[in-house]
Design a protein around this nucleic acid. Structure first.
Lengths: 219, 219
DNA sequence: GTTTTAATTCATCACGTGATGAATTCCTCT
DNA sequence: AGAGGAATTCATCACGTGATGAATTAAAAC
């Protein structure tokens, strides 16, 4: 028989706040922001829904607390930014993989998933993240602004593709590959994007991209 | 003043079904499945919510109708699969870009967005899509199964990164680039993934991937 | 030892959701 | 002209959501 839960404070030191955060990170990462309810989180954490409101005053703030990374990405990338340009691609990739395979993984997955949305949070999150991360990665590289924007977007596209395949969609053999294997497969491309020669696009006649409604300039 | 809507059937031929589909595609693509409500769709289409249930019996079926592509991707990719291996990368990329810049775009964006989720629909959709698309792309390429799985996942990762950057996140300059520019930037990598030499990964000591909970084998 | 503060649950609120069945108006077929 | 069906809206239903305030119990502060 199930003992009815007692009211009031429990004995001993409480871990509820951490339990809630862990469950929230997990579920936000799995299902995304909107599709995850506070009550599911509370159920997963074995806690009353109202307790969530007690610690984090609402769903938005809970989410913010979730994506507040355990490790500062700027710090992690700082080392990579200091390596010589010839090895910047590999260094960047290794730093990112180490970060993503750390305890920060659920938060990062939640971030990436939410960044693909177009809610207010998403666009804020991705603007901030892209500006912070990319500006750091591109720091000190040669080239004018247009060229750097191109290089940055190529690198971002490659990294996003890898992270999505490995951590979100869990496509084999990328998911179970070692860092060394991934570096062997992706670092050359990344390196090329960052400081390699840009392909010739001199004959570019007409634009037929996806229309002008790409309003919010991320860069 | 706003004229109160009349009840009953309107005069003339009705376009409501198409209006609903268009709004649904748009909103599903923008916000994702769960975050989009039938009432929003109906409002956007200028239609009573119950009409949505009349045409498509529920939300799930509406979504299915939405991602039922106007163009058959298999057909589009068939041509690319018939080009000689040396140009397969460029052909594939051009075929995909043409498809994504067609009227199928909202449906494809909805598909991609939903594929990043982990609801029942998502995993079904992505399993089917990956199996169909990838098997077609890899058809006739040399190599054993393991090698082809690796090549496929590398190519998928690159293509996904590009599609996310260009159509979901709308990162400049990828969003407004021409097909020729994108081909110049991405086709070499893709070509390498498909039939180029695979980098040496002979010294691969330890596995430290994201754990064994990568249960559902997409491949 | 008493008071204050933190942790926890309960009961409830207003609201939006997806769904259903009936009512009304028009079109098409005979 | 009349009958049957398709298109459209209305009035609901049960349910889940995020949020709030009060009640209860334990720990901390004094």
């Amino acid at each position: 028989m199930k003992s009815p839960p007692v009211r009031g404070r429990r004995q001993g030191r409480s871990t509820s706040r951490e339990l809630i955060l862990a469950s929230a990170r997990k579920l936000f990462a799995e299902r995304g922001f909107t599709a995850t309810s506070l009550r599911e989180i509370a159920r997963d954490a074995g806690v009353d829904p109202a307790l969530v409101h007690h610690y984090f005053s609402g769903k938005d703030e809970l989410f913010n607390a979730c994506v507040e990374l355990p490790a500062d990405p700027g710090e992690v990338l700082a080392d990579a930014s200091k390596t010589p340009a010839a090895e910047r691609g590999e260094a960047l990739l290794r730093a990112l993989l180490t970060l993503w395979d750390s305890s920060a993984q659920p938060a990062l997955v939640a971030l990436l998933r939410s960044a693909t949305g177009s809610t207010p949070q998403s666009s804020l999150v991705r603007t901030v993240l892209f500006k912070r991360v990319l500006s750091q990665v591109l720091a000190g590289l040669p080239g004018n602004d247009d060229e750097l924007a191109l290089r940055g977007s190529l690198a971002a596209s490659t990294v996003m593709g890898l992270m999505m395949a490995r951590y979100l969609l869990r496509i084999q053999p990328l998911t179970s590959a070692t860092h060394d294997e991934l570096v062997a497969w992706f670092a050359p491309t990344l390196q090329n994007h960052l400081i390699g020669p840009l392909p010739d696009t001199s004959n570019t006649p007409a634009r037929h991209g996806p229309g002008p409604e790409s309003a919010d300039g991320v860069f």
